[in-house]
């Protein structure tokens, strides 16, 4: 029951992040919303791994953490006009 509640909170947070990507007044807002969306997705994968008792999904958490960080840095540099 706790895991289901947490998954509902994750769904609402992902909706908020998508809304901020659409309406965000600046591009930095959109990068921030993409970052939050990635964190929410990683949280959801961890919650699903606990709920379904599937430890293989936790490797996905490790990889997604790194990919999310690289995504944020590259997008932020692209917005700042320093992407090379």
């Amino acid at each position: 029951m706790v895991v289901e509640t947490a998954l509902v909170v994750m769904a609402l947070s992902l909706a908020v992040a998508a809304w901020r990507v659409v309406v965000g007044p600046s591009d930095a807002d959109r990068v921030l919303a993409v970052d939050l969306g990635f964190i929410v997705v990683v949280c959801s994968i961890a919650l699903l791994a606990v709920r379904a008792r599937t430890p293989a999904l936790l490797d996905l958490v490790l990889v997604a953490t790194l990919v999310g960080f690289l995504t944020t840095v590259v997008l932020a540099r692209l917005v700042a006009g320093r992407g090379r």
Binding site: V2, V3, M10, V16, R20, A33, L36
Partner: peptide, 19 residues
């Protein structure tokens, strides 16, 4: 389960701050 709930509520607070 308490840690899972606290963490998800913290992420929800972050989303609320984004709004």
């Amino acid at each position: 389960q308490g840690l899972l709930l606290a963490g998800s509520l913290l992420v929800g607070v972050a989303a609320l701050g984004l709004v």
